[in-house]
């Protein structure tokens, strides 16, 4: 079956800086493909090249089987784009914005009004539909922006950081919309730096760091990398750095790491982690243990192992952007 999206050797430079350094990937039809990486990794630049907002310096792009490398307009009728920041018209209401976006794809008036009503109902955005876009909350704006991008029923949808900067309940609702779109057969290219979001939604994930894809695989295969590992966090009142070194010496088969907030993270790559032994050791050596908890194996571990970037770094970036 023909891939919905194909990129071959894509390169984008901005002056001396190479934002995307020769990436290759394919996205299957009906798949949710996650593009995961920290800020500045090249996620948005890639989306811009795929959607026609940026011209690649080298490489090829095929969307829905159409060659878009030299003609970015070739596939715009079959794609929808949700940018990282809402880009609808502030002076129009949500409903007017939806109808206007439909008109841009040549939809007739009756057709676009019917479709807009359908989407208002599907997304539950009746309040935003009657309100000027500028006066909507961030969550409402996001929902209207997603609705606007699927007015023309595109089989391929690009979502750039869809849940960044919105509250938890709005983000949860948007994840539900994305799952609903997948069930309807839409191919989704999703960029995010929320690892748990990618894990929950995506079929396959590409990790991108400094403009290069370091690994592309299915979520299941990626999670197999950390199978058999056991990880525990030990929260101490103080002195985590010193105690971490002592634990590492006393238990050479374990990997010890100090995490923010006086936490020692201990990983056993093979075999069971004996929590009791470690707790006793910590207490015998002056550690005041506040909490010990088992860390579930997750894509976060995989991401850290593959990219060498701590997930906390991305979370901080995310908080910085969201604020």
């Amino acid at each position: 079956m023909q891939p919905a999206i194909e990129a071959g050797g894509l390169v984008k430079r901005f002056g001396e800086k190479t934002a995307v350094a020769g990436i290759d990937f394919q996205v299957g039809s009906g798949e949710i493909f996650g593009f995961l990486g920290p800020n500045g990794a090249g996620k948005t630049t890639t989306i811009n090249m795929l959607t026609g907002l940026a011209r690649p310096d080298a490489g090829t792009i095929r969307i829905g089987g159409l060659d878009c490398t030299g003609n970015p307009k070739a596939a715009q009728h079959i794609t929808g784009v949700v940018p990282d920041e809402s880009n609808l018209y502030p002076e129009l209401t949500g409903f007017e914005n939806l109808c206007f976006c439909g008109a841009l794809y040549g939809m007739r008036r009756s057709e676009r009004e019917a479709r807009a009503k359908e989407l208002v109902e599907f997304f539950g955005i009746a309040e935003a539909a009657g309100r000027k876009f500028a006066a909507c909350s961030k969550g409402m704006k996001r929902a209207v922006t997603i609705a606007a991008s699927i007015m023309h029923r595109p089989p391929i949808l690009f979502l750039d950081e869809p849940t960044t900067g919105i509250d938890v309940s709005a983000a949860r609702q948007i994840r539900r919309f994305i799952s609903g779109l997948r069930e309807a057969g839409t191919t989704i290219f999703l960029t995010t730096h929320y690892i748990e979001e990618a894990e929950r939604l995506c079929d396959r994930i590409a990790f991108i760091v400094s403009g290069r894809i370091v690994r592309t695989d299915s979520v299941t295969s990626l999670l197999q990398m950390v199978q058999g590992r056991e990880v525990m966090d030990f929260a101490l009142a103080s002195g985590a750095v010193g105690l971490c070194e002592r634990v590492a010496t006393a238990f050479p088969q374990l990997q010890c790491q100090v995490m923010p907030g006086e936490i020692i993270r201990i990983t056993s790559s093979a075999g069971r982690l004996r929590a009791g032994e470690i707790v006793r050791y910590l207490e015998d050596h002056g550690g005041q243990l506040l909490e010990a908890r088992r860390v579930q194996n997750s894509l976060e571990e995989v991401f850290v192992r593959i990219t060498g970037i701590e997930a906390g770094v991305m979370k901080n970036e995310k908080a910085g952007r969201g604020s």
């Binding site: 959607t51 026609g52 907002l53 307009k73 715009q76 009728h77 794609t79 784009v81 940018p83 920041e85 880009n87 609808l88 018209y89 502030p90 976006c101 841009l104 794809y105 606007a148």
Partner: peptide
């Protein structure tokens, strides 16, 4: 500036 022009550039309308 407010990026709504991007919405137009993303539509399949010749420039």
């Amino acid at each position: 500036r407010n990026r709504s022009f991007e919405r137009l550039l993303l539509a399949p309308v010749p420039l």
